[in-house]
């Protein structure tokens, strides 16, 4: 069983919703990334999502876009990100790691080489924002052969038919995009999201995560009530941005928000049972 499957099964038994924080690798400095991954796990993260910096992140809002630019100032590429995951694995063999990024760095490395290198580095899932099912080619097959889970986005605009196909080919978990927009946007309709998550659950046995626009602990707690996982990105990256000149402070600010979200999610769950 994959690390993602193992982790989600354990959470299901504890009736807990997974908290999945996102950071862009190399932001604000490559020295902080592995430390921050461990710090987030200690603060209550169940899965860690690591962004591969890309020069033209069309699915991301200004916050993550600027995180990419900060990381690219240090020339952080896909190979460097894999090396960071490998270092993370030296001290943590259990927490699943999902890479989130764009197609071109993988295209340049080559699909087969990427699948092999990602597996060897200890990556568990791969989410490629600008590669819908139709353009996957043999990539999801190569990932699956390596035991890696292809994680797919489902959007509010996805048709029933597409949702079905995505559920059939997805691995690890299905990631529902909670709004029409880029990462870090505002205004979430929790009820509408809940309905779509239920629809997805009726199509797949995989856990359903929700992300995009979850900016604070109360929103995380409300989303946690309707989903199997809550993904938080821009809210954390904003804290990195605010403390980009002081790595210790950045670490503290990020892990503090992860812990707040964890507490809010657990407290809401306890109150509802």
């Amino acid at each position: 069983m994959s690390r993602l499957a193992t982790r989600f099964q354990a959470l299901r038994e504890q009736q807990r919703t997974a908290l999945i924080p996102y950071i862009t690798a190399g932001d604000p400095h490559p020295d902080l990334t592995v430390r921050l991954m461990h710090g987030m796990v200690a603060a209550g993260a169940d899965v860690v999502e690591v962004g591969v910096p890309f020069s033209d992140p069309i699915g991301d809002g200004p916050v993550i876009q600027q995180a990419c630019e900060r990381a690219l100032c240090h020339n952080v590429g896909l190979r460097d990100v894999l090396a960071m995951v490998r270092r993370f694995r030296e001290d943590d063999t259990e927490t699943p790691v999902v890479l989130m990024g764009y197609m071109n760095p993988i295209e340049v490395m080559g699909y087969a080489e990427f699948a092999k290198a990602a597996l060897e580095s200890g990556v568990d899932g791969v989410l490629t924002v600008d590669m819908p099912l139709e353009e996957m080619g043999d990539l999801d097959g190569l990932l699956a052969d390596s035991g890696l889970d292809p994680v797919f986005l489902v959007a509010p605009t996805s048709t029933e038919e597409r949702m079905q196909t995505i559920c059939e080919r997805a691995g690890g978990f299905v990631y529902y995009v909670s709004l029409k927009g880029v990462t870090g946007a505002a205004s979430l309709d929790v009820d509408a999201v809940g309905q779509r998550v239920d629809r997805l659950r009726s199509m797949t046995g995989l856990p359903v995560g929700v992300g995009f626009g979850i900016s604070d602990a109360p929103t995380a707690a409300r989303m946690a009530a309707v989903a199997d996982a809550v993904v938080v990105g821009s809210a954390l990256v904003r804290r990195i941005e605010a403390n980009q000149d002081d790595l210790d402070k950045a670490h503290e600010a990020v892990t503090e928000l992860v812990a707040d979200m964890r507490h809010a999610m657990d407290a809401a769950a306890a109150a509802s049972t």
């Binding site: 819908p132 139709e134 959007a155 509010p156 605009t157 996805s158 048709t159 995009v177």
Partner: peptide, 22 residues
């Protein structure tokens, strides 16, 4: 019919845009 010129072209976009492209 899938929008390719040989190996080029295609629809490499976030999932949200697949429906409006259709």
């Amino acid at each position: 019919e899938t929008g390719h010129f040989g190996r080029y072209g295609g629809q490499f976009v976030p999932e949200t845009l697949m429906a409006p492209l259709r």
